[in-house]
Design a protein around this nucleic acid. Structure first.
Ligand code: FES
Ligand code: FES
Lengths: 132, 132
DNA sequence: TCTATTTAGGTACTTAAATTCCTAAATAGA
DNA sequence: TCTATTTAGGAATTTAAGTACCTAAATAGA
């Protein structure tokens, strides 16, 4: 059972966690609660949110009653942005595998997978935290 | 730089190698030549072809002048079949991440990524070795 | 001011997948 | 029959992701 679309556990945690936070606004949520709700590893989630915080997507507050909250409007946070912070920057190019050198003149995927990669990219770009 | 579509190096080797073999018919090709042409790891390619052979896609012959050749018509070998042998069976379902339990009632990807997964699936199914 | 809570960040551990290494078995050709 | 070539298959290694652990820093509230 394999996934055709590449989304790491970490990116999934970021996406799910941020949706929860967006829905829960204006209240903050802390890692413990988030992990419980998502039924996920607390430490992993903490690491992921540490990165989201460093990237400026969320604001963090330490201490009792601390936690995470959005650092900009839910309308302005796309799935694409989240994905690229946690996994990595998406490169759309000639070959969906990112191969520069291939025995074949033109990519054996004949642009079909490029079309689809672009589709995913655009879809991620359209999806916002405010959709929930 | 991350790939949106999940295709392992092994699956890529299988795809590229089989296309070469298909184009080279009716001559056999051995691992050494294939690896050189593809500029790829010889041992990895050998493993991949061992699996393709076990799965019945190719026929192997040992010894001098041995190598691999297709075990059925190039028209009857789809990219999907190759992909599923090397990576694994594709499951199209509710959630593109294959999550059974999610905090949210409906998958946060709202069927968009399912549409795309199905698109990839159908595209892989359409692409055949005889296209080259 | 002190204490409990909570994030930050570094290091270490675990696990699964990808890749390599090594030896055995098959076979064509001398 | 012998040798060189080539695939088969298992074991070992490497790599990357995920996960845990520990200490420090911040801060709210008693
Ligand atoms: S160039 Fe895209 S697969 Fe070879
Ligand atoms: S159910 Fe698909 S992502 Fe949560």
């Amino acid at each position: 059972m394999s996934n055709l679309i590449n989304i790491s556990e970490a990116a999934s945690l970021a996406l799910h966690g941020l949706v929860l936070i967006a829905k829960n606004q204006p209240l903050r949520m802390n890692v413990k609660v988030l992990a419980e709700e998502l039924n996920a590893s607390q430490t992993h989630l903490a690491k992921v949110f540490q990165n989201l915080s460093k990237a400026g997507l969320v604001r963090s507050l330490r201490g009792p009653s601390g936690g995470f909250e959005l650092n900009k409007s839910a309308e302005d946070i796309t799935f694409l942005e989240i994905y690229e912070i946690i996994d990595s920057k998406i490169m759309l190019g000639e070959c969906p595998l990112g191969k520069n050198h291939c025995v074949f003149q033109s990519c054996i995927f004949d642009n079909e997978l490029n079309r689809i990669s672009t589709d995913i990219y655009d879809t991620f770009k359209k999806m916002k935290l405010s959709d929930f």
